[in-house]
Amino acid sequence: MAVRRLRRGAPTPRGSGRPAIHTADRGGFGRQRKRGSGLVVGAMITASVVVLTLDAGGQGDAPVEAARDSVGAVVGPVETATAALARPVREAMAYMSSNKELRDEVATLSSENSRLRHQADQTPLDRQRLAELDGLTRSANETGQALVASRVVAVGPMQSFSRTVTIDAGRSSGVRKDMTVLNNDGLVGRVVRTTRSTATVLLVVDTESVVGGRLGSNREIGFLRGRGVTDGRSRLDLDLADNTVTPAKGDVVVTWGSQGGRPYVAGVPIGRVESVYSTPRELSKQAVIAPFVDFTSLDVVGVVVPRDTEGDRIVLNGEVDQ
Protein backbone atom coordinates (compact mmCIF):
# COMPACT_ATOMS: atom_id res chain seq x y z
CA MET A 1 0.00 0.00 0.00
CA ALA A 2 2.77 2.36 1.04
CA VAL A 3 4.70 1.32 -2.02
CA ARG A 4 2.01 2.28 -4.45
CA ARG A 5 1.22 5.55 -2.81
CA LEU A 6 4.82 6.68 -2.80
CA ARG A 7 5.38 5.68 -6.38
CA ARG A 8 2.37 7.61 -7.45
CA GLY A 9 3.42 10.59 -5.37
CA ALA A 10 6.96 10.73 -6.75
CA PRO A 11 7.12 12.92 -9.84
CA THR A 12 8.26 10.90 -12.82
CA PRO A 13 8.40 13.32 -15.73
CA ARG A 14 9.57 12.40 -19.20
CA GLY A 15 13.28 12.01 -19.64
CA SER A 16 14.82 14.81 -21.64
CA GLY A 17 17.28 12.47 -23.28
CA ARG A 18 20.16 14.39 -21.81
CA PRO A 19 22.65 12.12 -20.06
CA ALA A 20 22.20 13.68 -16.64
CA ILE A 21 24.85 11.72 -14.85
CA HIS A 22 27.93 13.57 -13.62
CA THR A 23 26.63 16.97 -14.63
CA ALA A 24 26.50 19.90 -12.28
CA ASP A 25 26.84 19.06 -8.65
CA ARG A 26 24.42 21.67 -7.39
CA GLY A 27 20.76 22.04 -8.09
CA GLY A 28 20.56 20.60 -11.53
CA PHE A 29 19.83 16.95 -11.11
CA GLY A 30 18.48 15.66 -14.38
CA ARG A 31 15.00 14.35 -14.85
CA GLN A 32 16.33 10.97 -15.85
CA ARG A 33 17.95 10.65 -12.44
CA LYS A 34 14.85 11.74 -10.66
CA ARG A 35 12.87 8.98 -12.32
CA GLY A 36 15.65 6.50 -11.57
CA SER A 37 15.70 7.44 -7.91
CA GLY A 38 11.94 6.98 -7.68
CA LEU A 39 12.44 3.43 -8.92
CA VAL A 40 15.24 2.84 -6.40
CA VAL A 41 13.14 4.16 -3.54
CA GLY A 42 10.26 1.92 -4.63
CA ALA A 43 12.57 -1.08 -4.81
CA MET A 44 13.98 -0.39 -1.35
CA ILE A 45 10.51 -0.04 0.16
CA THR A 46 9.49 -3.31 -1.44
CA ALA A 47 12.63 -4.97 -0.08
CA SER A 48 11.84 -3.68 3.44
CA VAL A 49 8.30 -4.99 3.25
CA VAL A 50 9.59 -8.37 2.04
CA VAL A 51 11.94 -8.56 5.03
CA LEU A 52 9.10 -7.56 7.37
CA THR A 53 6.83 -10.24 5.96
CA LEU A 54 9.52 -12.90 6.10
CA ASP A 55 10.29 -12.18 9.73
CA ALA A 56 6.74 -11.61 10.93
CA GLY A 57 5.43 -14.73 9.19
CA GLY A 58 8.35 -17.08 9.83
CA GLN A 59 8.45 -19.48 12.74
CA GLY A 60 11.91 -18.85 14.13
CA ASP A 61 13.83 -20.71 11.44
CA ALA A 62 13.11 -18.13 8.75
CA PRO A 63 16.00 -16.82 6.62
CA VAL A 64 15.92 -13.67 8.75
CA GLU A 65 17.07 -15.65 11.76
CA ALA A 66 20.09 -16.90 9.82
CA ALA A 67 20.83 -13.31 8.76
CA ARG A 68 20.56 -12.18 12.38
CA ASP A 69 23.03 -14.86 13.36
CA SER A 70 25.63 -13.91 10.77
CA VAL A 71 25.24 -10.17 11.36
CA GLY A 72 25.56 -10.82 15.09
CA ALA A 73 28.70 -12.89 14.55
CA VAL A 74 30.35 -9.93 12.80
CA VAL A 75 28.86 -6.95 14.64
CA GLY A 76 28.85 -8.56 18.11
CA PRO A 77 32.64 -8.52 18.60
CA VAL A 78 32.76 -4.94 17.24
CA GLU A 79 30.17 -3.96 19.85
CA THR A 80 32.22 -5.67 22.55
CA ALA A 81 35.33 -3.74 21.52
CA THR A 82 33.44 -0.44 21.31
CA ALA A 83 31.89 -1.00 24.74
CA ALA A 84 35.36 -1.61 26.18
CA LEU A 85 36.51 1.70 24.70
CA ALA A 86 33.44 3.53 25.99
CA ARG A 87 33.58 2.01 29.48
CA PRO A 88 35.93 4.63 31.02
CA VAL A 89 33.55 7.37 29.85
CA ARG A 90 30.61 5.54 31.36
CA GLU A 91 32.41 5.04 34.64
CA ALA A 92 33.47 8.69 34.76
CA MET A 93 29.88 9.80 34.18
CA ALA A 94 28.56 7.42 36.80
CA TYR A 95 31.21 8.67 39.23
CA MET A 96 30.26 12.29 38.71
CA SER A 97 26.55 11.74 39.09
CA SER A 98 26.77 9.44 42.07
CA ASN A 99 29.55 11.14 44.02
CA LYS A 100 27.32 13.35 46.12
CA GLU A 101 24.74 10.64 46.58
CA LEU A 102 27.47 8.27 47.71
CA ARG A 103 28.82 10.65 50.32
CA ASP A 104 25.38 10.95 51.88
CA GLU A 105 24.98 7.22 51.70
CA VAL A 106 28.35 6.60 53.37
CA ALA A 107 27.28 8.75 56.31
CA THR A 108 24.00 6.89 56.72
CA LEU A 109 25.55 3.50 56.24
CA SER A 110 28.40 4.00 58.65
CA SER A 111 26.02 4.99 61.44
CA GLU A 112 23.84 2.01 60.61
CA ASN A 113 26.88 -0.21 60.43
CA SER A 114 28.05 0.65 63.92
CA ARG A 115 24.57 0.03 65.26
CA LEU A 116 24.39 -3.35 63.53
CA ARG A 117 27.87 -4.32 64.66
CA HIS A 118 26.80 -3.62 68.21
CA GLN A 119 23.74 -5.83 67.73
CA ALA A 120 25.74 -8.61 66.16
CA ASP A 121 28.20 -8.64 69.05
CA GLN A 122 25.34 -8.89 71.49
CA THR A 123 23.73 -11.89 69.87
CA PRO A 124 26.10 -14.78 69.19
CA LEU A 125 23.03 -16.96 68.79
CA ASP A 126 22.09 -15.10 65.66
CA ARG A 127 25.55 -15.65 64.34
CA GLN A 128 25.20 -19.37 64.81
CA ARG A 129 21.95 -19.35 62.89
CA LEU A 130 23.62 -17.36 60.19
CA ALA A 131 26.30 -20.02 59.86
CA GLU A 132 23.57 -22.64 59.44
CA LEU A 133 21.88 -20.59 56.77
CA ASP A 134 25.19 -20.17 55.08
CA GLY A 135 25.59 -23.93 54.92
CA LEU A 136 22.10 -24.29 53.48
CA THR A 137 22.87 -21.79 50.80
CA ARG A 138 26.05 -23.60 49.98
CA SER A 139 24.32 -26.93 49.59
CA ALA A 140 21.67 -25.31 47.48
CA ASN A 141 24.44 -23.97 45.37
CA GLU A 142 26.01 -27.39 45.07
CA THR A 143 22.87 -29.13 43.90
CA GLY A 144 21.84 -26.20 41.82
CA GLN A 145 23.31 -24.34 38.95
CA ALA A 146 26.43 -22.48 38.00
CA LEU A 147 26.99 -19.01 36.61
CA VAL A 148 28.88 -17.65 33.65
CA ALA A 149 29.86 -14.04 34.32
CA SER A 150 29.71 -11.53 31.50
CA ARG A 151 29.32 -7.84 30.84
CA VAL A 152 26.65 -5.83 29.07
CA VAL A 153 28.19 -4.42 25.89
CA ALA A 154 25.22 -2.97 24.00
CA VAL A 155 21.78 -1.67 24.88
CA GLY A 156 18.93 -1.53 22.39
CA PRO A 157 17.65 2.03 21.85
CA MET A 158 14.25 2.81 23.35
CA GLN A 159 13.24 3.98 19.85
CA SER A 160 12.91 0.27 19.05
CA PHE A 161 10.40 -0.01 21.95
CA SER A 162 12.03 -3.21 23.17
CA ARG A 163 14.24 -3.54 26.20
CA THR A 164 17.09 -5.81 25.21
CA VAL A 165 20.83 -5.84 25.87
CA THR A 166 23.78 -7.69 24.38
CA ILE A 167 26.20 -9.49 26.69
CA ASP A 168 29.70 -10.53 25.72
CA ALA A 169 29.29 -14.25 26.41
CA GLY A 170 27.82 -16.51 23.74
CA ARG A 171 27.67 -20.11 22.58
CA SER A 172 31.41 -20.53 23.01
CA SER A 173 30.94 -19.92 26.74
CA GLY A 174 28.06 -22.37 27.05
CA VAL A 175 25.29 -19.75 26.92
CA ARG A 176 22.15 -21.01 25.18
CA LYS A 177 18.69 -19.68 24.38
CA ASP A 178 16.22 -19.50 27.31
CA MET A 179 18.74 -19.29 30.11
CA THR A 180 18.20 -17.12 33.19
CA VAL A 181 20.25 -13.93 33.50
CA LEU A 182 20.70 -12.29 36.90
CA ASN A 183 23.03 -9.96 38.73
CA ASN A 184 23.90 -9.15 42.34
CA ASP A 185 20.55 -7.52 42.95
CA GLY A 186 18.18 -9.99 41.32
CA LEU A 187 16.60 -11.17 38.10
CA VAL A 188 17.68 -9.37 34.91
CA GLY A 189 16.02 -11.36 32.14
CA ARG A 190 16.45 -14.31 29.84
CA VAL A 191 18.58 -15.14 26.81
CA VAL A 192 16.52 -14.96 23.60
CA ARG A 193 19.26 -15.36 21.00
CA THR A 194 22.91 -16.30 20.88
CA THR A 195 25.82 -15.93 18.52
CA ARG A 196 29.24 -17.50 18.97
CA SER A 197 30.55 -14.68 21.17
CA THR A 198 27.49 -12.68 22.24
CA ALA A 199 23.97 -13.23 23.49
CA THR A 200 20.84 -11.07 23.41
CA VAL A 201 18.99 -10.75 26.71
CA LEU A 202 15.33 -9.75 26.96
CA LEU A 203 15.01 -7.71 30.17
CA VAL A 204 12.11 -8.52 32.50
CA VAL A 205 10.85 -4.93 32.11
CA ASP A 206 10.19 -5.49 28.39
CA THR A 207 6.50 -5.65 27.49
CA GLU A 208 7.02 -9.06 25.85
CA SER A 209 8.48 -10.52 29.03
CA VAL A 210 6.35 -12.70 31.29
CA VAL A 211 7.88 -14.24 34.42
CA GLY A 212 6.25 -16.62 36.86
CA GLY A 213 6.60 -15.07 40.31
CA ARG A 214 5.94 -16.22 43.86
CA LEU A 215 5.19 -13.98 46.82
CA GLY A 216 7.77 -14.44 49.55
CA SER A 217 5.35 -14.30 52.49
CA ASN A 218 2.52 -16.66 51.49
CA ARG A 219 3.99 -18.61 48.53
CA GLU A 220 1.16 -17.48 46.24
CA ILE A 221 1.98 -17.49 42.55
CA GLY A 222 1.30 -15.08 39.73
CA PHE A 223 2.69 -13.65 36.53
CA LEU A 224 4.87 -10.58 36.18
CA ARG A 225 4.70 -8.48 33.05
CA GLY A 226 7.07 -5.69 32.11
CA ARG A 227 5.97 -2.17 31.39
CA GLY A 228 8.75 -1.38 28.94
CA VAL A 229 10.38 1.47 30.82
CA THR A 230 13.91 1.28 32.14
CA ASP A 231 14.42 4.66 33.72
CA GLY A 232 14.06 5.19 37.46
CA ARG A 233 10.37 4.35 37.25
CA SER A 234 10.71 0.90 35.69
CA ARG A 235 7.99 -1.30 37.15
CA LEU A 236 6.44 -4.74 36.68
CA ASP A 237 2.79 -5.70 36.97
CA LEU A 238 1.95 -8.80 39.00
CA ASP A 239 -1.27 -10.71 38.29
CA LEU A 240 -1.97 -13.18 41.07
CA ALA A 241 -3.55 -16.50 40.15
CA ASP A 242 -5.68 -16.58 43.28
CA ASN A 243 -7.92 -13.52 43.45
CA THR A 244 -8.66 -13.91 47.14
CA VAL A 245 -5.07 -13.19 48.08
CA THR A 246 -4.00 -9.63 48.70
CA PRO A 247 -0.26 -9.13 48.47
CA ALA A 248 1.26 -7.10 51.26
CA LYS A 249 3.13 -3.95 50.49
CA GLY A 250 6.87 -4.51 50.74
CA ASP A 251 6.53 -8.24 50.14
CA VAL A 252 9.39 -9.76 48.13
CA VAL A 253 8.63 -11.57 44.85
CA VAL A 254 10.89 -14.39 43.64
CA THR A 255 10.78 -16.52 40.49
CA TRP A 256 8.87 -19.77 40.85
CA GLY A 257 10.90 -21.46 38.20
CA SER A 258 10.14 -23.46 35.09
CA GLN A 259 10.64 -27.06 34.06
CA GLY A 260 14.36 -27.72 33.95
CA GLY A 261 15.15 -24.16 34.99
CA ARG A 262 14.40 -22.80 31.53
CA PRO A 263 13.84 -19.99 30.91
CA TYR A 264 13.80 -19.12 34.61
CA VAL A 265 15.35 -20.97 37.54
CA ALA A 266 13.45 -20.87 40.83
CA GLY A 267 14.08 -18.57 43.77
CA VAL A 268 15.72 -15.59 42.10
CA PRO A 269 14.57 -12.36 43.78
CA ILE A 270 12.74 -10.07 41.34
CA GLY A 271 11.42 -7.12 43.32
CA ARG A 272 9.24 -5.77 46.09
CA VAL A 273 5.50 -5.07 46.08
CA GLU A 274 5.09 -1.32 45.81
CA SER A 275 1.33 -0.94 45.61
CA VAL A 276 -1.75 -3.11 45.20
CA TYR A 277 -4.85 -2.35 43.19
CA SER A 278 -7.82 -4.15 41.73
CA THR A 279 -9.85 -3.18 38.70
CA PRO A 280 -13.58 -3.88 38.57
CA ARG A 281 -13.20 -5.58 35.21
CA GLU A 282 -10.64 -8.09 36.30
CA LEU A 283 -11.19 -10.62 39.01
CA SER A 284 -7.63 -10.97 40.22
CA LYS A 285 -5.74 -8.49 42.33
CA GLN A 286 -2.87 -6.71 40.67
CA ALA A 287 0.27 -5.45 42.28
CA VAL A 288 2.98 -3.13 41.06
CA ILE A 289 6.46 -4.48 41.64
CA ALA A 290 9.58 -2.33 41.94
CA PRO A 291 12.42 -4.52 40.63
CA PHE A 292 15.61 -4.87 42.66
CA VAL A 293 17.77 -4.51 39.56
CA ASP A 294 18.62 -1.03 38.30
CA PHE A 295 18.18 -1.48 34.56
CA THR A 296 19.76 1.86 33.70
CA SER A 297 23.19 0.84 34.93
CA LEU A 298 23.47 -2.84 34.04
CA ASP A 299 27.07 -3.98 33.77
CA VAL A 300 28.20 -7.34 35.18
CA VAL A 301 25.56 -10.06 34.88
CA GLY A 302 25.58 -13.83 35.35
CA VAL A 303 23.98 -16.41 33.08
CA VAL A 304 22.68 -19.51 34.88
CA VAL A 305 24.18 -22.55 33.11
CA PRO A 306 24.22 -26.27 33.90
CA ARG A 307 26.93 -27.26 36.33
CA ASP A 308 28.95 -29.29 33.83
CA THR A 309 29.22 -26.45 31.32
CA GLU A 310 32.58 -26.09 29.69
CA GLY A 311 33.53 -23.06 27.68
CA ASP A 312 36.07 -20.33 27.20
CA ARG A 313 34.94 -18.57 30.37
CA ILE A 314 35.22 -19.44 34.03
CA VAL A 315 32.08 -21.13 35.33
CA LEU A 316 31.29 -19.91 38.83
CA ASN A 317 30.11 -22.83 40.94
CA GLY A 318 29.54 -21.04 44.20
CA GLU A 319 32.47 -22.96 45.71
CA VAL A 320 35.57 -21.23 46.96
CA ASP A 321 38.68 -22.51 45.23
CA GLN A 322 41.42 -23.09 47.76
Binding site: S48, V50, V51, G72
Partner: peptide, 21 residues
Amino acid sequence: LAPPADHVAGQWALALVLVAA
Protein backbone atom coordinates in the same frame (compact mmCIF):
# COMPACT_ATOMS: atom_id res chain seq x y z
CA LEU B 1 19.53 -7.50 12.62
CA ALA B 2 22.52 -6.51 14.78
CA PRO B 3 22.30 -7.56 18.42
CA PRO B 4 20.52 -6.66 20.69
CA ALA B 5 17.64 -6.07 18.24
CA ASP B 6 14.63 -8.28 18.96
CA HIS B 7 11.86 -6.58 17.03
CA VAL B 8 10.48 -7.81 13.69
CA ALA B 9 13.24 -7.20 11.12
CA GLY B 10 12.54 -4.70 8.36
CA GLN B 11 10.86 -2.08 10.54
CA TRP B 12 13.85 0.26 10.69
CA ALA B 13 14.67 -0.48 7.05
CA LEU B 14 11.20 0.65 5.97
CA ALA B 15 11.22 3.71 8.25
CA LEU B 16 14.63 4.88 7.03
CA VAL B 17 13.86 4.30 3.33
CA LEU B 18 10.78 6.52 3.73
CA VAL B 19 12.94 9.11 5.51
CA ALA B 20 15.42 9.02 2.62
CA ALA B 21 12.62 9.56 0.09
